[in-house]
Design a protein around this nucleic acid. Structure first.
Lengths: 262, 262
DNA sequence: CGGCGAGTTGAAGAGCTTCAAGCCTGGTGG
DNA sequence: CCACCAGGCTTGAAGCTCTTCAACTCGCCG
């Protein structure tokens, strides 16, 4: 999917440089020059690994570095006193979190590893440096923030005004698109979803039981098929219509439009 | 509430410079130097007025300027095909919206004036300039973005995992705090809330009917009192506990902590 | 082969919605 | 000055979506 990434970089697999997912993410939306690509690849930081189920960041914790997802899936979540839990967003490879460390010092929510994850930890100074390196890089990073905010807004709409069927359908469609950019386990009409039904329920403000029934209903009605933790779209267009899913909030084409209008 | 704002600036009322609300907002969290304050006050832009009920920004519209709330209340919202509507966030004086214009060109949601509002429209170039003017200013603007994201996350928790009573209580507590910084019609234990019950319902994923019943329940149980569109907290601590409301997400003290740790 | 996490299913019940109607307040015009 | 209108608020009753509680199944790993 990424356009003209340096092939030497793109083809590596097993021994990915830790910055590769980030590069894919940034380059998908903004055409980075060879120099900008090099700056991303040479970004200094430390690799940290977390096992599934472990908190990568805990609410209340003092933050000291920006974290970038390298591989695996994670979720931002907030826990209520009585054990209720709300997942705010799903983090995929290439996603940046706690960029806010540059200004705020304390996490107001937690991040949990859904699969085993590997994150790349970048110091505030290194982050500040690359952020301001070139105008294109500044824009590329800003981009990811704009997108992340759009995901949050969409999540509000889902939880506030959509039915269980719509919530689940639109979340699946969103995750599929996002995974296409940086994940390996993705096909044109399906993807491997590492979330459990309980994760989905906590993201969508439902009970796991109702999530289960709704998934089966979507399946029964011919919208999706499931096999282990793979989701297959049998009628993606129909599902999108059912859910009022409009991917405009990804802002995928804005960069090209900007190129043409400037 | 703002700390050592230049008194000449702070005391003006009727003929507020359009940048005043912004200055209050920025200066509340970050100690701006006299020069930085001047830069904010001298920020170039155009004043635009909108009557209540009118869209300030419409989804799909191409954005060309950053807008800053000068006076009045507005809401970001997203409309679904069938007429359902979800309010994403409330905009108060000093709030910046479409800062993302600097990178993305199309609005993925709308903004509607709840009262008559006055906004200050700043060109991308003027915005870019002040954003990078000093490190403190950069941080101050970044700050507002971090906060806005925190509001969105809180909104997800409300709509996803809280009961009607909790949703309404925590929204009222949040708006009271936010209004304290920039709004006039605010007392220690109450404030003027220009939102209708239908607005509240659309923000919290409820029907206006249920919103009404829940407000009355909160009143009957001694948490709040209402008079016209004023809300009075009779037992703010009790309400906060009821709603699991923890204002940590405002990150109010982070700047001071940062000062001490740097 | 036992146990554990995840998924599945049924039945009863709660919270919120829907539909329907009436009320109250502030603004407008005769 | 009062009648009237519109928008917002209030109340009742029935019904639907989703939850709660409880139990059972399946696949996997030690």
């Amino acid at each position: 999917m990424p356009r003209d990434l340096d092939q030497k970089i793109l083809n590596s697999k097993e021994d990915d440089p830790p910055q590769l997912a980030l590069l894919k993410r940034l380059h998908f939306y903004t055409n980075l020059s060879k120099e900008d690509q090099a700056a991303v690849v040479n970004l200094a930081g430390i690799i940290r690994q977390y096992e599934r189920g472990i908190d990568v960041v805990s609410a209340g914790q003092n933050l000291s570095a920006t974290l970038i997802m390298r591989s695996g899936w994670a979720v931002r979540y907030k826990a209520l006193e009585d054990g209720r839990r709300q997942i705010l967003n799903v983090l995929l490879p290439g996603d940046i979190f706690d960029l806010q460390v540059l200004v705020a010092a304390e996490a107001d929510h937690s991040v949990m590893a859904v699969t085993n994850v590997s994150v790349f930890s970048v110091s505030p100074s290194a982050m500040t440096e690359i952020l301001g390196k070139t105008a294109t890089l500044t824009m590329a990073f800003w981009w990811t923030q704009v997108q992340e905010e759009a995901f949050l807004r969409e999540q509000i709409v889902r939880n506030g005004r959509q039915t269980a069927k719509e919530r689940i359908g639109s979340l699946l469609l969103e995750l599929h698109r996002r995974a296409q950019i940086v994940d390996e386990a993705v096909q044109h009409d399906g993807f491997k979803l590492p979330l459990t039904q309980t994760h989905i329920a906590d993201a969508l403000g439902l009970t796991p039981i109702h999530t289960n029934r709704t998934l089966r209903a979507l399946q029964r009605q011919g919208y999706i098929e499931r096999d282990r933790n793979w989701i297959w779209f049998k009628d993606a267009d129909g599902l999108a219509e059912l859910c009022d899913f409009d991917p405009a909030y990804f802002h995928i084409d804005a960069y090209d439009r900007r190129l043409n209008s400037d």
